[in-house]
Amino acid sequence: MKLIIAIIQPYKLEEVKNELYKSEVNLITVSEVLGHGRQKGVTEVYRGAKETGNLLRKIRLEIAVNDNYLEPTIQAIIRGAKTQETGDGKIFVLDLKECVRIRTEERGSVAIG
C-alpha cells in the first residue's frame, strides 16, 4: 500500500480530478495549502503595493492506493497537472503501513478501495 501526496496548481484541480476518475481512482482528500515555490506565481497588488511574499497557493491531494494502482494514479495526476511550466508541482510516494475502515474495522488493502 502506498500513500500518494501530490502538490498541484489550484487551477489544475478539475483536470486532475477528471483524469483520476478516468483511471478509476475515486477516493481522494483535497486541501488548500500554502508553500514556497520556485516560480513567481500570479502577482497580487493591493493599493499599488505588490504582494511579494513567496508563499504560493497550491492544492494538496492525498490518495491511498494498493500497489497495482500506484502507477496509473501517478500517470493520471501528471496528465491532469502538467503544463511544462515551473510550478506544476510534485508527487510524493510514501509506504503506507496500515489502513483501517472505521465503519467495518476492515484492515489492509481491502480497506483502501
Partner: peptide, 21 residues
Amino acid sequence: EKTEAIGLDLTQHHERAYTVL
C-alpha cells in the same frame, strides 16, 4: 481557458477575496 481556470480576480485585477493564512 487558463485565465478562466485561474479565475478573473487574479487574472483581471491582481487581487483575491480571501486569504488562507
